[in-house]
Write a protein that binds this DNA or RNA. Structure first.
Length: 258
DNA sequence: AATGTTACCAACCGCCCCATC
DNA sequence: AGATGGGGCGGTTGGTAACAT
């Protein structure tokens, strides 16, 4: 079924949002919620399509969104999660509180992907691997990561996930388990290289932040697209998967209570 | 100072899945 | 059972700021 884009209707505005539009949308959602995105712009008096409003809200206006540069820990978490989940940005975003899938996707394409590609070529971290261009400072306070995911033994994790993870039913996980070779292990050494002016990362993974487990539990109870395909036991399987990942990573020794 | 190039990121587009009729 | 609508996701684009020449 092919549907015409919702914004094809004449008179609907496209492009960057004005501060006034932001204000109207924010006020409306705070007062009335967003039960129906399609009807929302009309009710709020915005000349936008519902889809545009949803994107603006979820990617920019939502109050719990964390602004500012990604920390080294967040970038490492994205890299590790991308190894496990592939281009499932929403699933990755679910593990990074305050970060949107769009933001993570952007960071991946503009920054992390190149970093990894460069590292494959050079095989060793050098000062050239670091960002050529300085990021312009953000206006809001500097972000800080509330979770720490530092998996050092990628091959072990990936192979294990191919056995126990519900994601193993999908091709992406099979690719992960088969593609992680000694060479890729060498690449992964890069993940631990310290950013300029910071301490070197410890060899052993740091303890998993407790908040991670509550996020996993919360995430598992929400039926997202990732979970839906796994059937009724998805919640338990997902929990078991993440637990196994971090046990293998050496981050925790026992299953926390949820 | 002017121009070209690169990097970043907000926003859009098309497709898919699920719920409802 | 099939059609339709709404929401969500991932890929891509376009504007612009920063940097290089």
């Amino acid at each position: 079924m092919v549907r015409a884009p919702c914004c094809e209707k004449m008179g609907l505005k496209k492009g960057p949002w004005s501060p006034e539009e932001d204000r109207i949308l924010t006020n409306f959602i705070q007062n009335h919620g967003h039960s129906n995105w399609r009807a929302l712009p009309k009710q709020a008096g915005l000349l936008r399509c519902g889809k545009s409003c949803r994107l603006r809200w979820t990617n920019y206006l939502k109050p719990d969104i964390k602004r500012g540069n990604f920390t080294k820990e967040e970038e490492d978490a994205i890299i590790n999660l991308h190894e496990l989940l592939g281009n499932r940005w929403s699933a990755i975003a679910a593990k990074l509180p305050g970060r949107t899938d769009n933001e993570i996707k952007n960071v991946w394409h503009t920054h992390l992907k190149k970093r990894l590609e460069k590292n494959i070529k050079t095989k060793a971290p050098t000062s050239e691997n670091k960002r050529k261009k300085q990021i312009k400072p953000k206006t809001s306070s500097e972000s800080s990561s509330s979770i720490v995911i530092n998996i050092t033994n990628q091959t072990q994790i990936a192979n294990y996930s191919s056995i126990t993870s519900p994601s193993s039913q999908q091709s992406s996980s099979c690719e992960i388990s088969s593609s992680l070779t000694d060479a890729s292990m060498a690449e992964n050494e890069y993940y631990s290289y310290p950013a300029e002016g910071t301490e070197a990362m410890p060899e052993a993974p740091p303890p998993i932040d407790e908040s991670f487990w509550s996020e996993v539990a919360e995430d598992s109870t929400n039926s997202n697209s990732m979970d839906k395909s796994y059937g009724e036991s998805v919640v338990d399987d997902d929990m078991e998967f993440w637990y196994n990942v971090f046990v293998q990573a050496g981050g925790i020794s026992e299953l926390p209570e949820f």
